[in-house]
Simulated scan of single mutants.
Amino acid sequence: MEFDETQARALIKTADPDGQVILIGSAGHHDRYNRLQLYSFATAPALEQRRDVFGEIFRAVCGVIGEPTILGGGPNGPDVRWRNAGPRARVLRLRADTRNIWIETGLAEELEDEELTTFEHGGFGGSSGPSDFPHLPYTWQLIHLGPGDTAEYLPGGRLASTLPHLQEALKTLVKVWIEQLPIQQPGKKATFTIASSGIKGGLSFAYDPAKGILLRIGSRTGDSVDGLRR
């Protein structure tokens, strides 16, 4: 779960021979690192460039250490995780923001407890203010087929207290899926349903990288047939 300089440089050379490697280590431990910066953009890149570079590095890392345990990410960027099993499990995270791509590692329990607390107790700005959906630890996670355990307790999600909060949550989710899903799950689509007492069958939402965003709205009270809207 730790990398030395030779391993880090081998990873980035596999991903992009022109990539910049910055190694960050704790004092007195110059051969071991808990955070490795793998790539830095000189200027803020466009979405396509940012997605393409992360995809190259993601595939290179998977080629070296195997498939991840958990896929996912948030508004700041992707957050892909490899996790050990056992009471002293560690989690390795491949992360990115708008300018940097890096690997970091730490104790799984500490990270997961902190994230669980944020989901359960993080504050809203009140019904008249903005929600905190864009500031949660992650927007989406998908348990993958790679080795390792998931967290013992997973967040139960966050309810939207108002319609504007729901709109903000959906906007946040759509934005991160457009950037992150095609790289982490090529050719796959994601779906979910919003239940409503006034809509039979609810509102089914799908994001398909090839077709875009699809919405299917069930019949409302008094309607004779289901409607399909895209």
Rank of each mutant, 00 (worst) to 15 (best):
L214Q: 11
A60I: 09
G129H: 06
G74I: 09
D97V: 11
G77C: 07
N76M: 10
Q180A: 05
L111G: 03
T98H: 05
L47C: 04
E120R: 06
H144F: 04
P155Q: 07
D79R: 05
I213F: 10
Y33F: 15
G74H: 00
G25W: 00
G72C: 02
E110C: 01
E179D: 12
G122K: 08
G201E: 14
I199V: 15
R59S: 13
L145D: 10
I103V: 04
A10Y: 00
G77W: 00
G157F: 00
G198A: 14
A190E: 04
T162W: 02
I213M: 11
Q20A: 15
L154R: 14
R230N: 09
N34F: 13
G66T: 11
Q37F: 01
G157P: 07
L163Q: 14
N100F: 02
I22F: 07
S224C: 04
T193D: 09
L111T: 02
S204P: 07
I65Y: 08
P155I: 07
S26V: 01
T6E: 15
Y33E: 00
Q49Y: 10
D226P: 04
L107V: 11
N100D: 12
A206W: 08
E104M: 01
R81Q: 13
K189E: 12
I199N: 10
Q37E: 15
V174T: 12
C62L: 03
A8W: 06
T150C: 08
G123N: 06
P137M: 09
E179P: 00
I12Y: 05
G198K: 14
A42Y: 09
G201L: 11
L38H: 04
I213C: 02
G86N: 07
V176T: 15
A85D: 12
S204V: 11
R32I: 10
A206F: 03
W177V: 04
A96N: 09
E2F: 13
G74C: 05
D208W: 07
G106Y: 05
R35S: 13
G156V: 06
T105G: 09
S196N: 15
G86L: 13
E152W: 01
G28R: 01
I103M: 13
E120V: 04
D132V: 09
F3E: 01
Q7D: 03
P45N: 03
R230K: 10
P45D: 14
P164I: 02
Y138Q: 06
G63K: 03
I65P: 06
K188Q: 13
L23N: 03
L214G: 05
G73W: 00
E110Q: 12
D18P: 00
G19S: 06
R230G: 05
G63L: 10
R35Y: 10
R230E: 13
E168M: 14
G146S: 06
P68Q: 12
L92F: 03
V225I: 12
L214K: 10
H144C: 02
K13C: 09
Q7M: 14
E179M: 02
E5A: 15
R9E: 15
V53H: 04
D52T: 01
I12M: 15
A60M: 08
G19P: 01
P75L: 13
G19C: 08
L36R: 04
E168T: 14
R93Q: 12
L170F: 08
A44C: 12
T14P: 02
S224F: 06
K200F: 04
A27I: 00
V64I: 15
N100I: 05
E168A: 14
Q49I: 03
Y33N: 05
L47V: 15
N34C: 12
L163S: 08
D132G: 08
A60C: 12
G218S: 07
